[in-house]
Design a protein around this nucleic acid. Structure first.
Length: 537
RNA sequence: GCCCUCAUCGUCUAGAGGCCUAGGACACGGGCUUUUCACGCCUGUAACUGGGGUUCGAAUCCCCAUGAGGGCACCA
């Protein structure tokens, strides 16, 4: 299409985990670049020295890799920071900063944060929005406070064409002179973004709608630097089902609620430190909402057995979603491939993707549909592919299936792919293959204690004990006979199931017994037969 | 408060003036299948925010109202 090669970028700030909203932004940028045979750049925006961490950057790279969103230029995983980290490009920014000052487009300002807050408050009292402008009265004198650099925005209306939303214009009195260099000498986001997008030759800026009002500021900068701005496209946002913005705070909120419920149940808050392994003061700060540390939230969640909502990409990975399913689902929020298509491979997405087919309305993140889609992916997939997905899942989780051999994992996958929504669900439900089952009391009462179930179970045991060659072929006819046993057709297999699995739900008995093996099967039945009448363990 | 954006089933969406008695998917209800749970198959309920225009004709174009969201940081 264009004579210039298309180049897009995803530019997260390394202040936390990669969030699903960010993943969608990355996906759309990736799709757009690939679709046009262009390049996809990954850039780390670490100009906030306080909040940026190396671990966060590493985590974001890992999540992007898990999602299969490979970048053409960007950080090298596992290597030292390179020029795709903004903190490594200070010289570049400083050069342009000087130029703007020389051109009279940028100037120093000396207000302290407190002074600025007071000015804002005063403006608010007069019911007028606060705009910092070079020509306004009451500016702080040189040397009276920290020095920042501000960019003098023009006073004219700025209009631009958004590739998704159409023409957007913002009046001249809406602008204010944004800070472009902080008092610590680092550029602000607004400045670094413009310099880098230009320097890296970005042709299309595809980002979330929350950036819409930043665009005039950036355009002002492009103009002052005499650069041609890239095309802009703002995508609709993703919300929770209750219409609140999806954010990491949802997790901390859920954790605090879980603690409140737990304390209400009569538990002492002091014990929390003990079971979570987190220092009491830290916990207190967290509960008083002084920090939003998601690691503390996660620890509370596991300690209290309270599931926290999945928000970050790695949450979904731990919950057993396949990266392809997550990607597919995320793509469909705000984008429609048309033709009533829904389940799409990456190749199909590439074929159908275009900015014109991205909608304008924000969408809600419907976990039920994601769960369905994930199940759909699991069912459609071959065992080899699933084995890969399971391996990636096992890296970040600790279920017993993690230690199973490949052959065993294959059998479990085959057994569960028709009946599980997530890998985590499978990992949880298949526990009884690896460890002694926890007996479900209700199932025990219903299928072991009632009527002549124990007598039937003894008959089953005797029948199974005769099977010496424990194989599918040998077992199949025995199971057929078991089905006919008992007072009610179908009650005997349930008795066997409960005895062996600890509950009334499992994959088909034939497969289950085969995988479990003769010894374990008979041992579990014996344990039940020997257990005292009406004892519910 | 000011500025910007958006508006079709509960949810994601199709729809670019007549093809719309508004299509698909999830969820939900009913049924079939069935050794449990699922899967699968059949089937049902369910929407153009309101009011004005424009037009022979509007979910589609315009205006207003309402609602929802975003932005107004030495955070990105």
């Amino acid at each position: 299409m264009d004579s210039k090669m298309v180049k897009t970028r995803f530019a997260p700030s390394p202040t936390g985990f990669l969030h699903v909203g960010g993943a969608r932004t990355a996906l759309f940028n990736w799709l757009f670049a690939k679709k046009h045979g262009g390049q996809f750049v990954l850039r780390i925006e670490d100009t906030d020295q306080v909040r940026s961490t190396a671990e966060s950057a590493a985590g974001i790279l890992a999540d992007l890799q898990w999602l299969g969103l490979n970048w053409d230029c960007g950080p090298q995983p596992g290597a030292a920071k390179n020029e795709y980290f903004q903190s490594m490009r200070l010289e570049l920014y400083n050069g342009y900063l000087e130029k703007l000052v020389k051109d009279g487009r940028a100037y120093e300002a000396y207000e302290t944060p407190q002074q600025l807050a007071a000015m804002r408050m005063a403006a608010e009292k007069m019911k007028r929005p606060f705009r910092y402008r070079r020509n306004m009265p009451g500016r702080a004198a040189p040397g009276s406070g920290p020095t920042v650099l501000r960019f003098e925005m023009p006073f004219e209306t700025i209009t631009f064409h958004d590739l998704i939303l159409g023409d957007i214009s913002v009046g001249g009195d809406e602008h204010d002179d944004i800070i472009i260099r902080k008092s610590d000498g680092f550029p602000t986001y607004h400045f670094a973004v413009v310099v880098d997008d230009h320097d890296m030759g970005i042709t299309h800026v595809l980002r979330a709608q929350e950036h819409l009002m930043n665009t005039p500021k950036h355009l002002g900068l492009y103009n002052a630097l005499a650069w041609t701005p890239p095309a802009h496209a703002h995508m609709p946002l993703v919300f929770n089902m209750d219409n609140t913005k999806m954010s990491k705070r949802d997790k901390t909120k859920a954790a605090r609620v879980a603690v409140a419920v737990w304390v209400k149940q009569g538990n002492s808050a002091d014990k929390l430190s003990e079971i979570t392994g987190i220092a009491a003061e830290q916990l207190k700060e967290f509960l008083d909402k002084k920090t939003d540390d998601s690691r503390i939230a996660a620890a509370i969640g596991t300690a209290l057995g309270a599931p926290l909502p999945e928000i970050d990409v790695q949450d979904f990975r731990r919950s057993g979603y396949l990266s392809d399913a997550l990607l597919n689902f995320i793509a469909l929020i705000g984008w429609s491939p048309g033709e009533n298509r829904e389940i799409l491979t990456r190749e199909e997405m590439l074929e159908l993707f275009s900015l014109e087919t991205i909608g304008k309305t924000s969408g809600r993140f419907d976990r039920k549909k994601l769960l369905w889609m994930n199940g759909e992916y699991i069912r459609r997939r071959g065992i080899d592919e699933l084995l890969h997905d399971l391996a990636a899942f096992n890296v970040v989780t600790q279920y017993p299936i993690k230690n199973a051999g490949e052959a065993q994992q294959r059998e479990l996958l085959a057994m569960y792919q028709e009946r599980t929504g997530t890998l985590a669900e499978m990992a949880e439900n298949s526990r009884f293959f690896f460890e002694e089952p926890k007996m479900d009391p209700a199932a025990f009462r219903k299928h072991i204690e009632s009527g002549n179930s124990r007598v039937v179970l003894q008959q089953i045991r005797d029948m199974l004990a005769l099977v010496t060659n424990w194989s599918r072929d040998q077992l199949a006819p025995v199971i057929e006979k078991i089905i006919e046993l008992g007072e009610k057709r179908g009650s005997a297999p349930q008795t066997l199931r409960v005895a062996v699995c600890g509950g009334s739900v499992s994959p088909p008995l034939l497969e289950t017994l085969c995988l479990l093996g003769r010894d374990a099967t008979l041992a579990r039945i014996d344990a039940i037969l020997q257990s005292p009448q009406s004892s519910v363990s």
